[in-house]
Design a protein around this nucleic acid. Structure first.
Lengths: 132, 132
DNA sequence: ATAGGTGCAAATGTTTTGCTGTCAA
DNA sequence: TTGACAGCAAAACATTTGCACCTAT
């Protein structure tokens, strides 16, 4: 991203979709939803914009533990939880551990710029289904 | 994995390779190294064994932040650091945060079974190269 | 003896890219 | 006006799988 980006209608739709959902969607979900608004949008365009938006820091890409990425309209650091039953990705309502990077720096001598923390288990919905 | 597994020479070689390295190799690295010992081994066999060994809990698969997996001969929980300059994956010499899953359970009501923590930045080698 | 494993090659699923035409700034 | 971006389709890439043969138990 060393040049200016344009606000195309395709990019706008993708940004709006991501801002309006909390399901941490896949590229394909974004594509299918975007097609409802712009029927001629291509999957390549969706991927290109997701990448540009990620590089610009407007969204973030999540890619732990599966063969495909998910995208999060919230670029602020926060932790995620994956339900191993339904596959849903949820935000974890705990604070960021601010001092952690520094602690690892002190222990190792590396430059530690960020950390990612991801939980897995069973979400409330699936937990209740299992019990009934 | 509901049936018994056999110890084939292919699986033995793959296990030995993973036990003998700390570079958290990719499937392709394992394949290339295994071919030096068993020239006719196939990439499919490497993938099949890596999967079986992962499911059996003998090794672990690492798949954060890239388009391909790495494999770790050490199945015990520990944290990793990825150098964004050289791509190396290193073990982080800090203790596992034992109570963390429980804290998230208390905050959310979910069943939290595990967590993964991954750091990124610049390793010592690359840090020194940058300075010179 | 037999069922799990192998090698090979084709298939799969996700993401990227080359090309030509289009449109936002 | 012009160069960043679109659509389309082909390619790239990591990984999985079907099949016929092989081999550990």
């Amino acid at each position: 991203m060393q040049y200016k980006t344009r606000m195309t209608k395709q990019k706008k739709v993708i940004m709006d979709l991501l801002e309006g959902t909390d399901i941490h969607p896949t590229a394909d979900w974004v594509y299918e939803e975007a097609r409802k608004i712009l029927p001629d949008i291509s999957l390549g365009t969706v991927y290109r914009n997701l990448r540009v938006l990620t590089e610009t820091g407007i969204i973030q890409e999540l890619n732990y533990g599966s063969t495909y990425s998910r995208y999060d309209g919230n670029p602020d650091p926060h932790y995620h939880f994956i339900c191993k039953v339904c596959g849903r990705v949820l935000d974890v309502p705990i604070e960021i551990w601010e001092s952690l990077n520094e602690e690892v720096e002190d222990a190792t001598g590396w430059i530690v710029e960020q950390h990612r923390l991801e939980f897995s288990g069973v979400c409330t919905v699936c937990k209740n289904k299992t019990m009934s």
